[in-house]
Design a protein around this nucleic acid. Structure first.
Lengths: 247, 247
DNA sequence: GGGCTTTTAGTCAATATGACGTTTAGTAGG
DNA sequence: CCTACTAAACGTCATATTGACTAAAAGCCC
């Protein structure tokens, strides 16, 4: 039962933040955006970009605002989605702070400009973080693991993988997204068959891309479909194979 | 950037609640548990069970506590899972309250005893709520719609459907869960083939159930598998067919 | 042209699926 | 005892999908 906030002894007020796991694919590695903390606790450590939710703001708006501040990219170019809330009382040494994590997927972008803000944002390979090469503050490593598993699962059933690709893109570029996120190779021929047959996933532009090496590839734009039907499922075996190479 | 809660002007403290969408299957209809509100706003209206998160509590603990209070059932018998957070500033007329919704699935239980608490909890058919027969307070109708779609999707890929069945149960009972939640009929023969072949989903007990009518059915217990592989996918057509009969 | 790469197309066996039909084992009623 | 009736359990079969594989096509570099 909900009663008047602030006037009921049972009501406790909590600090609420949003934290962003912003994925992108650079080269052949999955990266996330992290910021260096300027103050205690965890001063000098890396953390997920994020911040307090402001009074008039929804969580989605707070996440979009943080995303703009960190990437200087339009929200429309990125996929932004709520992941889940984290609420361990001990997760922040300063006191009770719960956070709502968001997952963002986007194309490779220029490293965000430092100086607009006190914090410096950098891309780091996910493998380096999960392998222990980069410590994350708070429970952000847990959030990252959850976000990674969620993203991997999303690739199976939805068309979000295309959000990693700047338009227009080739089937090969899209396949590389899957391979990098999932951590194992896919058969080029079978992948093409699957993707081109999926309704409204890939919209041919008629143009071609002429790479430095290899046969020219047809170019596509993102179609209107949000779901990939039938899905492209990882086998039980490939889930095991999926490993993050410590970098 | 996170700074000391309560000492930074940028920090706003929010009231945080958990709300529970508790599904069960009774007869041939999907039901949820709702409570009648005793106070304004929405006095007399129905609402999802829920309440404020207490200072030392995680969200999961708050959800489990509310679940115990409303159902007097062990948490272990139920599937309880965080759905997502809702944060529209106007969602509560008294002020800023964000809520984290939880999804619970469980077997049919006796209607919770009234009197242990001021509020009375009752099972109502989901169809009656979504059809407009029962108004829900706040944005709880939206939460219910999201929870229903999530539950339907969960049945495709996971083994949670078995959580609706008191053990031991028959394949036919499990099939009825799918039919009631999805809102359309399944082929008994193909369903059986699928479920019995799935690894570690159904564990035969060797016993049989002798119903009033029809051939005796083998009894099963829930296996250890949490995912259903391969999944049992609704076709695009059946998603459209899935309709909630206004009750 | 020869070697290299990647795209694109095609083959084929194994598997999964959907739509059926049949048998089995119980109850209910004459 | 015999006949309906019901639902479980099992089987069949045409079709669709998948995974593994071969091969051709179309560019590049030397």
């Amino acid at each position: 039962m909900i009663s008047k906030p602030g006037h009921d002894p049972e009501v406790s007020l909590l600090a609420v933040t949003v934290d962003l796991v912003i994925f992108t694919v650079r080269g052949d590695e999955l990266h996330i955006l992290v910021v260096e903390r300027g103050i205690e606790p965890f001063q000098g450590a890396m953390a997920l970009p994020g911040g307090y939710v402001r009074p008039g703001e929804t969580l989605d708006e707070a996440a979009e605002r943080e995303l703009r501040e960190e990437t200087s990219l339009e929200g429309s170019a990125l996929h932004l989605e709520q992941l889940r809330a984290y609420s361990e009382p001990e997760r922040d040494p300063r006191g009770r702070v719960i956070t709502v994590a968001y997952l963002a997927l986007g194309p490779d972008m220029p490293p965000p400009v430092a100086g607009t803000d006190a914090r410096e944002a950098v891309w780091v390979p996910v493998a380096s973080v999960l392998g222990g090469g980069t410590e994350l503050a708070f429970d952000h490593a847990t959030i990252l693991r959850d976000a990674l598993e969620h993203a991997r699962s999303q690739l199976e059933h939805t068309t979000v993988a295309a959000k990693f690709c700047p338009e227009p893109f080739t089937v090969g570029e899209l396949r590389r997204i899957y391979e990098v996120v999932w951590g194992f190779k896919l058969d080029p021929s079978n992948f093409r068959r699957k993707m081109t047959r999926a309704e409204a996933f890939l919209e041919p532009t008629g143009e071609q891309r002429f790479p430095d090496v290899g046969r020219p590839a047809a170019l596509y734009r993102r179609g209107s479909a949000r779901f990939l039907v039938p899905p492209l499922l990882r086998t039980a075996a490939s889930r095991d194979d999926a490993h993050v190479h410590p970098g």
